[in-house]
Design a protein around this nucleic acid. Sequence first.
DNA 1: AGTTAAACGTACTTTTTGGTAGGTACCATA
DNA 2: TATGGTACCTACCAAAAAGTACGTTTAACT
Lengths: 121, 121
Amino acid sequence: MKKKDNNSDDFQVCPIDYGFKRIGGKYKARILWYLKKDTVLRYGELSRALPDITTKMLTQTLKELENDKLVHREMFYQVPPRVDYSLTCTGEELIPFIDHVREWSLREMEKEKDLLAVGSR
Amino acid sequence: MKKKDNNSDDFQVCPIDYGFKRIGGKYKARILWYLKKDTVLRYGELSRALPDITTKMLTQTLKELENDKLVHREMFYQVPPRVDYSLTCTGEELIPFIDHVREWSLREMEKEKDLLAVGSR
DNA sequence: AGTTAAACGTACTTTTTGGTAGGTACCATA
DNA sequence: TATGGTACCTACCAAAAAGTACGTTTAACT
């Protein structure tokens, strides 16, 4: 053998890996963020909140988040159809963490802007 | 036109996106974690701390982290060569955040384990 | 002279992820 | 009869990320 064979759920050994697998992906964190505490959004509202996401990716990502038990999905059998999305408790626990990254990023983006301003004077 | 053309650094509009771009990637967070506050590690030590990473990925990721100013790199011109890695201040600011995910993941992993235990009795 | 050690570099391939472009169902309204 | 609105689905394709395998440097040690 040449490497650890990672059959089964071997990958779960490292909690950092585990966590980033669940919230990684291009849009997951942003979707969770928009579904902040006590907010319920319909599919179309999410779509408008994230204008750069295609319907395919939105559907796919929401499904992943639902399977992962980070968002709750409730559908109403109407015509036209209606589907509501909201955070689960587990999902809510991630909000402060996303907020932390967000704050950090805002600071960093400011720094970059200042650097550019100084560089070009 | 059919979509916003994202030339230049347009992607930086969303701070959540920005942040996840800087710490996303399969190994970045783990490397930062091992380089916790006041810890200095050599290339080989990191390699041993993350046994599942190949040398190519370790080198590549470290270079990205260095360009991103999250880790500091100091090399000593010796034979055999020696290179030390440590966190920058900016990098350190991410530790509490990584810690949050880690704690969350540990709880989640416990939950999963319990569920499995219940399911199979 | 051959081997070893550390910290890489590079070419190539595979896997994963995301994007494009179409289509569906149902009913209401024009 | 045609069109519109909502929330999707599907097949195919492109790009990005990661993995494999092998090479390099230099000097000390055997």
